[in-house]
Simulated assay, not measured.
Amino acid sequence: MFANLINESSQKQLTVKVGFSWTEMFFGFWTPVFRSDFKWAAILVLAEILFGSFTWGGGAFLVTLVFAFFYNRLYVKDMVNQGYKPADKTSADILKSYGYI
């Protein structure tokens, strides 16, 4: 499911995914890099290195699997803190039903 966000001061619009992040599960830290979310990209790289180094890489997969359940929520909350708001009533209802706002 997707929702539309708009920043009223810059008029920039975003379409964000709501729910489980399949891209995070398959691509790991590259998902926040492509979304220009460098804070979470750095956190994921550090977590994957930390957990992967003790488990010959298996821990890195575990980190991406766990973050896949939470990353879209974290990303939307960061965008809301940066001034983005739901662009329409449908997007607001979707975000409220998932507990994002």
Rank of each mutant, 00 (worst) to 15 (best):
Q11C: 01
F54T: 04
F29V: 13
L62N: 02
A68W: 03
I94P: 02
G59V: 06
E48V: 05
F70C: 09
F26H: 01
V33M: 14
D88R: 03
L62C: 08
F26Q: 05
Y98M: 02
F61T: 03
G57L: 08
F61L: 15
V45A: 06
T64P: 01
Y84T: 04
I94D: 04
P86Q: 04
K89C: 02
V66A: 14
V16L: 06
F51R: 00
K85D: 04
A68M: 11
F69N: 09
P32L: 09
G83F: 07
G99F: 03
N7G: 09
F2W: 09
S97D: 15
S9A: 14
N72K: 12
F27P: 01
D37Q: 10
N81I: 02
L65W: 02
K17S: 10
I6T: 04
Y71V: 11
E8V: 08
L62K: 02
T64K: 05
T31M: 06
L5Q: 12
F54Q: 08
D93E: 15
K12P: 06
F51T: 01
T90Q: 12
N81P: 00
E48M: 12
D88N: 15
Q13M: 12
W56Q: 12
V45M: 06
D93L: 13
W22M: 10
F38S: 08
F38Q: 03
P86D: 09
L5P: 13
Y71S: 11
F34K: 14
F2H: 13
G57P: 07
L5I: 13
K77G: 06
G83E: 10
N4L: 05
S10L: 08
F67V: 11
S10E: 13
Y75P: 06
T31P: 02
V66S: 08
T15Y: 00
R35M: 10
R73A: 12
K96P: 03
L46E: 01
F38M: 14
T15I: 14
K12Y: 07
G58D: 00
I43C: 03
L74W: 12
K17D: 09
K17A: 09
T55Q: 08
P32G: 10
L74I: 14
F69M: 11
V63T: 01
I94A: 03
V76D: 10
T15W: 02
N72V: 12
G52Y: 07
M79L: 15
G58A: 04
T15D: 11
A3Y: 01
I43S: 02
V18Q: 07
E48I: 03
E24N: 10
I49Q: 05
V33I: 15
L95I: 00
L14A: 09
V66D: 01
K85T: 09
W40L: 14
R35A: 07
L46D: 02
S21Q: 05
A68D: 05
L65N: 01
K96H: 03
F67K: 04
K89D: 15
G59C: 01
A41H: 04
M25Y: 02
D93K: 13
L5F: 10
A3Q: 07
G52D: 07
L44K: 01
S53G: 15
T55D: 11
A41C: 05
T55I: 10
F69E: 00
K96T: 08
L5Y: 11
S36A: 11
S36T: 09
M1V: 03
Y84Q: 07
V66P: 07
